[in-house]
C-alpha cells in the first residue's frame, strides 16, 4: 500500500523509536496516525502495518478491536465523542448524548449521511473537573450544554461551507 509522504516519514521514524526487536511497539501509533489521515483503519492498512512491524495481520486485528479509539469503519470529518461516565453523567452528559443523537439523527459509532459528523458515546476522557465534557477529533470542549453543543456543531458546519 502506498502511504502519503507525511505518513511514510512518521512510520519510518516510529520504526526507529523502539529498541531493536521491539518494532511491534509501533503498532498503535502507526494505526492512530494512519487513521487520522485515512479516516479509518482499512484491511489494507492492517496488512501494511503487520508487514512493517513483523507480526501477523491477526495480531494487528487483536489490538485494533481491543481499543475503542481505533475504527475499522470510516468516521465523519468531525468525530463527536460525548462522555457519559460518572462525572459527566451527574452533570448532564446523558442529556447531552440524547440531544446530540436526536439532532444528528445518528447513534453510537454512527456516521451522518453527509459524512460530516459521527458520534460516539465514550467513557471518561479525563476532563471530569470540567464536566460535562466532549471531544471533537482531538479538541476538548468543557462544561458543554445542549445550546453550546448546537453552536459548536453549527460553527463547524459554516466554517466548512463552500
Amino acid at each position: 500500500m502506498t502511504l502519503s509522504p507525511h505518513l511514510e516519514a512518521k512510520f519510518a521514524k516510529l520504526l526507529t523509536s523502539y529498541p531493536p526487536g521491539r518494532q511491534r511497539s509501533a503498532m498503535i501509533p502507526m494505526l492512530m496516525f494512519a487513521q487520522d489521515e485515512l479516516g479509518q483503519v482499512t484491511q489494507e492498512l492492517v496488512e501494511e502495518v503487520a508487514r512493517r512491524i513483523g507480526c501477523t495481520p491477526l495480531q494487528v486485528e487483536e489490538v485494533l478491536t481491543y481499543y475503542s479509539m481505533l475504527h475499522k469503519k470510516p468516521l465523519g470529518k468531525y468525530h463527536v465523542q460525548i462522555c457519559t461516565n460518572i462525572s459527566c453523567m451527574l452533570t448532564g452528559g446523558a442529556e447531552l448524548w440524547e440531544h446530540a443523537s436526536g439532532k444528528l439523527r445518528i447513534g453510537h459509532r454512527e456516521v451522518a449521511a453527509d459524512g460530516f459528523f459521527s458520534l460516539e458515546e465514550v467513557e471518561c476522557i479525563g476532563a471530569c473537573s470540567w464536566a460535562p465534557a466532549i471531544q471533537v477529533n482531538y479538541d476538548f470542549h468543557h462544561h458543554v450544554t445542549p445550546e453550546k453543543l448546537d453552536r459548536l456543531l453549527a460553527g463547524l458546519r459554516s466554517a466548512n461551507a463552500v
Binding site: 501477523t56 491477526l58 495480531q59 486485528e61 487483536e62 478491536t65 481491543y66 475503542s68
Partner: peptide
C-alpha cells in the same frame, strides 16, 4: 502457525481465525 487470536474486549471478546 499462529492462526488464532483474540479480538474485541470484555464480555464480547472472542477467538478469531487468521
Amino acid at each position: 502457525v499462529g492462526a488464532l487470536g483474540i479480538v474485541n474486549r470484555g464480555a464480547v471478546s472472542e477467538i478469531a481465525p487468521n
